[in-house]
Amino acid sequence: MSHVLEFTLLIAGGSFLAGLLGSLTGLGGGVIVVPLLTLVFHVDIRYAIGASLVSVIATSSGAAATYLREGYSNIRVGMFLEVATTFGAITGAFLTAHTPTAAIAIVFGVVLLYSAWTSVKPQKDSAKVEPPDPIATRLRLDSTYPTHDGQKAYHVRHVPAGFGLMYLAGVLSGLLGIGSGAVKVLAMDQAMRIPFKVSTTTSNFMIGVTAAASAGIYLHRGYLDPGLAMPVMLGVLAGAIVGARILPEAKVRTLRIVFGIAIAAVAIQMILKGIGGKL
């Protein structure tokens, strides 16, 4: 890569593909763009997570309007859990400065493996109606969501466990510069027993706010390089917009399996490079 122009255009193209695939598979652009920048373009992982985090804010905020219109996302659940994710994000952003880059690469690889697994495994919405939970009732977290048979009510469960997992999701977001949507969905869907569609849309709505909490700290630490963040943000955003357009017609199931395997291979490479101290 001899010139800034050539480098920028290549990064923009790669980021476009990352945003497209992140949107089609539900993995998000961040988990794809960081390995792309570090493994392919040999960018220092701190610059990579800074640029990735900025693109995460752009895609999450840009998509929020659509999700809010559909009426799935639960604003109170999102806002309450953002207390956990924003505190976590600040913790994670501070940890980044004191963690060796090799360790960051290894943690990244493990989170990537987990994300790949969640995108491949079949998603089922449990039809079981949960009994009300006293904490959730007091916090007014219970709500309804649209189904084929009209609005369906649901009860939110295990609030402390979900809150704890959300703190972890925030730490990972701040440490790795990703949205950590997979961990957010785990907290809501598995721990708090929130319907899957409500979990994924509320997660997306929370990602931008979580990322904004670490972005300030990244700025002060000098992880946000304008020359690098520019093509990454524009590329991922454009890719995510195109992805959302073609999503209804795409054969997502096959794509998820093929891509899940590819991502798992990248994750292992990240872990190995981390162990070998090559990042």
């Binding site: 010139h3 800034v4 373009f41 701190r46 992880y223 304008p226 020359g227 520019m230």
Partner: peptide, 26 residues
């Protein structure tokens, strides 16, 4: 970002990129 990016590339497009070594921002 797009408009400033075009301006940036016009000005610095011919220089050599260096993100391999982390040295923070000014």
């Amino acid at each position: 970002v797009l408009a400033a990016g075009i301006f940036y590339l016009k000005k610095y497009g011919g220089t050599a990129p260096d993100y391999h070594v982390y040295k923070s921002e000014p």
